[in-house]
């Protein structure tokens, strides 16, 4: 039982990291109707920046600085590669972001080198024991930060003028434009938000360990998460992230009972879960079914 609870707690911790990464994808999707395959590169850029800054300014200053710099990088990507494609098919824009990802990641990898770079977070792998269950401090911190950021995002979308503009543009771009909403600014802000979320999410998802050239695959785990939750649902991204995290840890915990699946089966659990859910619900758990008309 303790074993199960510990696995669930670990799952919620990693899942919170996935939720942050997934929120970035969903914010971009809601604003521009495009899945940004550039998120892995942005995440990697943010995390690598943290690993360099942490020695200079400490962890708590490094994360916001990295988030801001990554947001600026995302703004640049949006301006240079995505804005010229407004009105083109979503597939073409998605492939452009794939090209951005491939190109940016080469530059970031040059800063990583061949070794693993340590994130330098204050928790490492230390645990606290609550009612006989060992909880990792980094997972508690991830959950806390995710909670705060989700609250802030909710407040931003609900109570600010720009948040209202973003919701309006997501609803109907032309109607929002007619009401004086600057849709270009909405695009830019959503990319910047996604970049910042990728940096923070990536940092907490790799906290306690390190980052190497293969860490970008972590951000791709957010893809099954957003499909599971529904591409255009912010709550779906959070629920999907936590669910995928827990399922992944449970698979890692109990995989010795099914050796024929091979080692590291937890790596593909999110994708398998996604396939199964899509066969039953083609728009994910909370996604809006597309209304088709000619």
């Amino acid at each position: 039982m303790t074993d199960l609870l510990e696995a669930v707690a670990r799952g919620l911790g990693t899942g919170a990291g996935y939720a942050l990464l997934a929120l970035g994808f969903v914010i971009i999707y809601k604003a521009t109707r495009v899945i940004s395959f550039a998120q892995p590169a942005l995440m990697l850029a943010g995390v690598v920046l943290v690993t360099y800054l942490v020695k200079v300014v400490g962890f708590w200053a490094a994360v916001p600085i990295a988030a801001v710099v990554t947001a600026v990088l995302a703004l640049g990507v949006e301006r240079a590669a995505v804005r010229p494609m407004v009105g083109k098919p979503a597939f073409a824009v998605a492939i452009i972001t794939l090209g951005v990802d491939v190109a940016v990641r080469v530059v970031v990898n040059a800063f990583i080198g061949l070794d693993v770079r340590h994130v330098g977070d204050p928790w490492g792998l230390r645990t606290v024991t609550v009612a006989g269950v060992d909880l990792q401090q980094r997972h508690l911190a991830t959950l806390l930060v995710t909670g705060v950021l989700i609250g802030a995002l909710f407040a931003f979308f609900r109570f600010t003028r720009m948040g209202l503009a973003m919701r309006a543009a997501a609803d109907d771009q032309e109607a929002a434009l007619a009401q004086g909403v600057s849709v270009g600014a909405v695009f830019a802000l959503s990319w910047a938000l996604a970049g910042a979320l990728a940096a923070v999410g990536g940092t907490f998802a790799t906290a306690g360990g390190g980052v190497d050239a293969a860490s970008w695959l972590l951000a791709l785990t957010a893809l099954p998460v957003i499909i599971l939750g529904g591409l255009d649902s912010l709550p779906g991204a959070v629920v999907g992230g936590l669910a995928v995290g827990v399922l992944q840890e449970l698979a890692a915990n109990y995989q010795q009972h099914a050796p024929w699946l091979g080692g590291n089966v937890s790596v593909i659990t999110p994708w398998v879960v996604m396939l199964v859910v899509l066969l039953v619900r083609p728009y994910g758990l909370f996604g809006t079914p597309e209304v088709i008309r000619t």
């Binding site: 790596v267 593909i268 899509l278 083609p282």
Partner: peptide, 19 residues
């Protein structure tokens, strides 16, 4: 599925296949 949902599902095939 249509459009980007399909793109991500086929992406999933690559990961499952690689495993």
């Amino acid at each position: 599925l249509r459009g980007l949902y399909l793109a991500i599902v086929t992406l999933g095939l690559v990961f499952i296949g690689q495993h």
